[in-house]
Design a protein around this nucleic acid. Structure first.
Lengths: 116, 116
DNA sequence: CGCATTTCTTACTTTTTTGTTAGTAGTTAA
DNA sequence: TTAACTACTAACAAAAAAGTAAGAAATGCG
């Protein structure tokens, strides 16, 4: 949980509010968020399928990142009233708009990899 | 300091190597890096001027972020052999290529801010 | 000598993020 | 009645990032 009054949090909030890019990074910056969005970009997936497609992630992290993505309007959670449960995740329009940007960032990022 | 064999580090490295965007985020994701690049985008600045232009940053963080930016080829450090010292920082070509991408990310990020 | 100047260092603490392990809920079907 | 199935949740531990406070080096100048 975040403290609301730490210098750390205050600095972070200031930057997010005054800089769109900082805000964008705070939304997609979690360790597994891009991976999740990338997996979902081709269509919705069930929780279990998503998990199996990202072998190294722990369930704790998967759920946490999904919750944050949902809270921030990047992913929709669809619950089917069944037992055993069936839950699907889908990217939102907001996420889709992000994809071309991510792609150019990716090209730049790959170039930096080579530059070492 | 980073441990070389923690799950945390290993996961991070895997993602960076396999995904250009993850790598890009690892290069510009530090708390103050975008701010620094943004300040330097209009021309080189002395250490003190840079510090004064970012009032909330501590010297420790400023130096640390600058060192990482330099290591990653995003900023050049120019030392003039004088006393008292004179050090200037300048963005590299790599950083300049990043700026249009940052700008589209910024537009997206601002839209998300409004969407709350 | 001793002080001012500028760019950092160093040692340390706090806060945040990420990871580990074990377990839960609610129903169906054997 | 018990196990199986799926999507989580909770308590805890480890690691990383960010922040605080104080001081250090090198030299010119009064």
């Amino acid at each position: 949980m975040r403290k609301t009054n730490s210098t750390n949090t205050i600095n972070s909030q200031n930057l997010n509010e005054s800089c769109g890019t900082a805000n964008a990074l705070s939304l997609i910056g979690g360790r597994w968020k891009l991976t999740i969005i990338w997996r979902l970009a081709n269509g919705k997936m069930r929780y279990g399928a998503l998990r199996d497609s990202i072998p190294l992630i722990s369930e704790r992290m998967l759920v946490q990142q999904l919750r944050e993505l949902e809270r921030d309007g990047l992913v929709t959670r669809i619950v089917y009233p069944q037992v055993p449960p069936r839950v699907e995740y889908e990217v939102t329009e907001n996420s889709l708009e992000l994809i071309p940007i991510i792609q150019s960032l990716s090209e730049w990022g790959e170039k930096q990899l080579v530059n070492l």
